[in-house]
Amino acid sequence: MTLDFAFIWQAFLLLLPAIPNTIYITVVSVGCGFIIGLIVALSRIFAIPVLSQIGTAYVTFIRGTPMLTHLLLIYVGLPMIVDSLADKYHWSFHSVSIPMIGFAYLSFSITAGAYLSEVIRSGILAVNKGQMEAAHSIGMTTFQALRRIVLPQAFAAALPNLSNSLIGMLHGSTLAFTVSVVEVNAKADIIATTNWKFFEAYLAAALIFWGLTILIERATALLEKRINAYNRGGVA
């Protein structure tokens, strides 16, 4: 087998317009997932009645089932729910109005939320409990103590795992092709069908994912360096 390097370069250039979709899916999913994960983590740490039990069941179910299954459940189930409610309440909005990428956003956000809740929970638990008690002793509320003292330290402790979650979601975004969303991997499939040079097209896609992963790793390293400088008192 002879590699067609010219086609690899051509495929690489043709794949570039698909990068925004991949980035949108990753950023939206991780951003929404972080909010979901924070709520779930706090409800479990503070043992909030009902919410903590729901959160535990949610995390157990999502982590115990494949990411692709979540996407298919949302893709098939959400239109049934939306159309049923639309018929019952005479809404003008129906499932056909939902963009395909919307299914990916919702599904991947739910998936990311479960995994990020464990990352956030471990980060919060890594902070000495005495700091919360000290904050209460000087008149801070629990919310103030979390915002000013606990969460910043928890973020620093959880940063490597947060970076891994972001990279994992970047790679997981390739599943969006299942619901007809054209991201980098799906675009590579389309490009390869023109001349059946699938290996070259997938290699070009792999190079793009590798490059995006390196960018995330570099950004994380710079952020860790910044945080460590603060922890050492090196930044005014």
Rank of each mutant, 00 (worst) to 15 (best):
N195K: 03
G113R: 02
L166Y: 03
N128G: 08
Q153R: 12
A47F: 03
P99Y: 10
S137D: 13
R63Y: 14
Q144S: 06
I191Q: 11
R148Q: 08
V179L: 06
G139I: 12
L38H: 08
V27Y: 09
S163H: 02
A204M: 01
F209Q: 00
F61R: 13
H70N: 09
Y230S: 11
F12Y: 08
Q131N: 14
M80K: 14
M80P: 10
K225I: 03
N164H: 06
A47D: 10
Y89E: 13
L3G: 06
T26K: 04
L207E: 01
S107G: 05
S163W: 01
R148N: 05
T2M: 04
S29V: 00
R63Q: 15
V28E: 05
L42N: 02
V179Y: 02
S29F: 00
L85D: 08
G123K: 05
A188H: 08
V59H: 07
I149P: 04
G55H: 07
V59K: 05
K129Y: 02
Q10P: 10
G211D: 11
S180K: 08
Y105V: 07
I110C: 06
A158T: 07
F177Q: 09
V182I: 11
S117I: 06
K187R: 15
P152M: 03
L16H: 05
A47V: 06
T178R: 06
N231P: 00
A219K: 03
M80D: 13
D189R: 13
V150M: 04
V127W: 06
R44Y: 01
I227M: 03
A156F: 10
E133K: 13
S52Q: 10
I74W: 07
T65P: 10
M100G: 15
S29G: 05
P66N: 14
S29H: 00
S109A: 12
Y75L: 10
T22L: 08
Y58T: 11
W91R: 04
L68T: 15
F198P: 08
N231W: 04
I62Q: 12
G113S: 09
N195Y: 05
D189I: 12
W9N: 13
V30D: 00
I48Q: 03
P17H: 04
L207A: 06
T213P: 11
Q153N: 14
M100K: 15
G211S: 15
A41S: 12
P49I: 04
V179E: 02
S122T: 14
T178E: 12
I19E: 04
S122I: 13
R147N: 07
E224D: 09
A6E: 09
L175F: 11
A158W: 01
S117F: 04
L212F: 14
Q144H: 05
S117G: 07
V181C: 05
I8T: 02
I35C: 11
H171G: 00
L215C: 14
L14G: 06
A47P: 02
G31E: 04
A186D: 06
S107C: 02
N185I: 13
F177A: 09
L71M: 12
R63A: 14
A112E: 00
A206K: 05
V27W: 10
E224P: 01
I216L: 15
A104T: 10
A41W: 01
I8K: 01
Y115E: 02
S84K: 13
A47Q: 08
T26H: 03
G233E: 04
I167P: 02
Y58K: 15
I54M: 14
